[in-house]
Nucleic acid binder design. Sequence first.
DNA 1: CCGTGTTTAGTTACCT
DNA 2: AGGTAACTAAACACGG
Length: 325
Amino acid sequence: MPRPGRNTYSDQKPPYSYISLTAMAIQSSPEKMLPLSEIYKFIMDRFPYYRENTQRWQNSLRHNLSFNDCFIKIPRRPDQPGKGSFWALHPSCGDMFENGSFLRRRKRFKVLKSDHLAPSKPADAAQYLQQQAKLRLSALAASGTHLPQMPAAAYNLGGVAQPSGFKHPFAIENIIAREYKMPGGLAFSAMQPVPAAYPLPNQLTTMGSSLGTGWPHVYGSAGMIDSATPISMASGDYSAYGVPLKPLCHAAGQTLPAIPVPIKPTPAAVPALPALPAPIPTLLSNSPPSLSPKSSQTATSQSSPATPSETLTSPASALHSVAVH
DNA sequence: CCGTGTTTAGTTACCT
DNA sequence: AGGTAACTAAACACGG
């Protein structure tokens, strides 16, 4: 929404809600969790707009973290001293933006506390996250290669081949890259190749899009996202949280590198992380059809919140949640 | 003290 | 128009 009098977009407020921005930050991290300070940093690195009035927006952001169930707090491990906790995305919060608008969610994401399937304690989710992070990193150590930084295909669940590549709606390339209709009438196509100044991995997706953006207010941040790592993630190879399923299956029980996995230590055994059943039922309501920004609008009304989770068997899926009004 | 986290409340904007 | 989401401000508690 370029306003008259403004020369560039760079100082304008990005068209993303704080929830979107926070989700982007979290998604961009290998462990899928970030401390608050890193979330701040991520946002400020990429959106110059947020380099000012930090007090204001950071307060809002903290409010959002606490207020929205789609963010879960993960306590630091004793050997990870520092202030504050880590923040991660709730596994089941994926369809909030299905209408394609990242300014306004379709529904507020709400965890059903009464659901017996849902772990009552964040620690459960934390434990799972930790496992995921460990496994990712151990897979990394084993392969000697980069792991995909983005779990774009992480939510490519269900084991159904999705040639076009499914991306979690919170994956930043999914958030930013999709065609966005500017309030002012402009329509940016994410497919426009825009050099360098773009923070997103450009080959993440099987959409094959070299992601570019029409977002001048977005700055690239070298290194934050491994844009040099081609990610050709075969669908079905990744589970929730971006953990490659194959490595996951193999890596369980491996010795883990000393990594900053900010969660409480898990027991030696990994019973809490049963071998992920593949295929994992999708955490998201309507996957492929809804991937189309076009079709998403029509798909918003009938998402059945309970349906996906009910069939889930993975720990992540046990975090039963539902979008409510 | 400062950063973090929670909560409440009011306003604005969007959607149905 | 009403409901809801997003944004903002503020107060307060807690811990490093």
